[in-house]
Design a protein around this nucleic acid. Structure first.
Lengths: 170, 170
DNA sequence: CTGTACGTTCAGTGCATACTGAACGCAGTA
DNA sequence: TACTGCGTTCAGTATGCACTGAACGTACAG
């Protein structure tokens, strides 16, 4: 590990994620976990990425909220161990659709507030709502059929993973 | 125009786009054009958005590259007139898939550079390539079927719109 | 030629935020 | 009790980049 190619990959992932609304460290964290053959602790990650524990802790929890990484523990060990979520791509995808939904919601809210007079604009807003509804539906279908397709470990329906405050440092 | 609701919508669009890798002015530009019932000139846009011509010019061309807005001219008028692209949603979508393609390309490049030893990691990278190929294909299908579905103006196949330098200020 | 009306480019500035080090809280151990 | 190891939080820093005003290049009018 820590080969030249490994570092290159992690660095590129950092840049790719950074230009995508994540932080650079978050992206490198993702890249490093993607190439790790076992779950890693916070200290291991901070050390490997050359970043502070504070940054890794924050970014890891951010990725956890998005369903990109997972946290696990070991009996007799108080440390957290992080790994890539098995369905991280689907999570990223759903997160993306969620962003579009926000645009759609803005249009809906505008129409509720003030009816649009211009027919051209009305048609445009209508188009936006229609295409969103259609594409979002198709994307969901695609994700579902993918899940069914690979049909490896029977994955549970993912109980809405909100940020659950830990006992510590409340 | 310039109503309270209009400004609210434009402002929200600015924030939504900003948190999505665009600039705030780019988002407001998009929002304003979305509600405009005719193409607008650079000066009109700069004035309406309360931004400098420089920013609007730059952001408008950026959105042009992404296929979100279009530029048009009028005979006997040297000004550019900007409007929302009819298929802006599809353009945004394709731009998004393109971002994922970059991640996929990184994985491919890594495998080319240095074969991965760990079976678990190999399976993970394989998963990433598979799901990308599958989902990207399905998204393309969805976009095509949408285009066919609405079937309004017969749109030409969109000759790859690279940034074409204008004659001016070369 | 000069003057005007465009859009683009460029250097400088300010702001937002990623990142850090250190303080902190908690849980376990002795 | 005190001590160690863990993750989180918080205040401060600095780094990137969005944004601006002004200079610039071009095209047309006279």
């Amino acid at each position: 590990m820590a080969s030249r190619d490994h570092d290159w990959f992690v660095g590129e992932m950092g840049l790719a994620f950074e230009s995508d609304g994540f932080t650079r460290i978050g992206g490198r964290l993702f890249g490093h976990l993607l190439l790790a053959d076992r779950p890693l602790s916070l200290d291991e990650l901070a050390d490997a990425l050359g970043a502070s524990k504070a940054s890794v802790s924050t970014d890891a929890r951010r990725l956890l909220d998005k369903g990109v990484v997972e946290r696990s523990g070991r009996p007799g060990d108080r440390r957290d161990y992080w790994k890539i979520a098995p369905d991280f791509f689907a999570s990223l995808m759903q997160h993306r659709v969620e962003r579009w939904r926000r645009l759609d919601a803005l249009v809906g809210e505008l129409k509720r507030r003030a009816p649009v007079s211009s027919p051209a604009v009305r048609a445009r807003l209508r188009y936006m709502e229609d295409v969103y509804a259609y594409i979002a539906g198709r994307v969901d279908e695609a994700l579902e059929s993918w899940q069914a397709r690979r049909a490896v470990k029977p994955r549970r329906p993912r109980a809405a993973a909100k940020t659950r405050k830990r006992g510590r440092a409340a």
